[in-house]
Nucleic acid binder design. Structure first.
Lengths: 160, 160
DNA sequence: ACACACGATGTTATTACGTAACAAGTAGAA
DNA sequence: TTCTACTTGTTACGTAATAACATCGTGTGT
């Protein structure tokens, strides 16, 4: 799993890849990858940043889908539940998943300057955390790991 | 730093300790540890769980303080900025800090059954995360680490 | 003493985020 | 066909957070 997101790459490609993966997964699991759901994922993937639910809703509404909050929240619930998108708690916002299907416990790298979001592996950190917690008798089931800082591009810009 | 919070202990003690530490810190830094701020911290410390801003506000209002949102949000801003309290992003809620002054990068252990919240060390996990991020050229400045699971008490109850 | 700057508190009003509850359409199984 | 399950759409509401402005008290400099 590579922390895509900060390097130049073809959005078109990673977008179609994500959508295709979702397509396959849904076909295999008998899930309905409906137009709103598909379009919501497309929008999320086409940006590599976290988007608020209402930002998404505005786009969906303008494209002829329902324009009320439940429309987008339901689509997001579906995408998140199935691992096609993630919620960034710190921002109350959502990102498309660029590693669909990959068995992942993701950690997020959020650039405070340009709002880009990348996913990276959280597994090693999770293991440590789990061990520490276990010492206290706490059984970790899930964890949110969200780092804030500067992405390569903005770092360069800052140094200049 | 010990993951207090799940074991029996004297709330009175850890509460007065936290308040005293804040007192000292404010005196040293020339900060105003005013009645609303003090009371807000007391309330947070007296529970070992995350409280919503509006829950706090209700208490404050009933005690003669202002009853509008900015009152509590400003107090919380002060407490968080100075390390006397923390925000739990996942819950949009706040907890009093039980390790005041300690140089900490805290991680939180949130019990999904009783809502108790404990703080534990995040440093080891942070280091790993920072290294991983650095590989991608990302410079981590801060990180939110929030684990959800079962605390010792609820774990026992679940097994019974 | 006076005027001023500063920080804290309080208010009203508004924005952002999220969900409950209900109506209606559509596709597949019995 | 009829029933069931699922999806989409709506209205209405609940919860979280902030903007903008008025007021007050304290300490400083004159």
């Amino acid at each position: 799993m590579d922390p895509i997101g900060f390097h130049q790459h073809d959005h078109e490609t990673c977008m179609s890849g994500g959508v295709a993966a979702a397509d396959d997964y849904c076909a295999a699991k008998g899930l309905q990858f409906t137009p709103v759901r598909r379009r919501t994922l497309e929008i999320l993937l086409s940006e590599h940043r976290a988007m608020g639910a209402y930002d998404l809703l505005e786009v969906l509404g303008a494209e002829g889908f329902g324009s009320q909050p439940p429309v987008v929240y339901r689509a997001l619930e579906f995408l998140v539940k199935n691992g096609f998108a993630h919620k960034i708690e710190r921002l109350n916002a959502f990102v498309g998943c660029v590693h669909p299907g990959a068995d992942h416990t993701p950690a997020f790298l959020i650039c405070r300057r340009c709002d880009a979001v990348a996913e990276t592996r959280a597994r090693p950190a999770m293991t440590l955390l789990r061990d520490l917690a276990e010492e206290a008798g706490f059984a970790v089931e899930r964890a949110v790991i969200e780092a804030e800082g500067l992405c390569p591009n903005c770092r360069e810009a800052a140094e200049a």
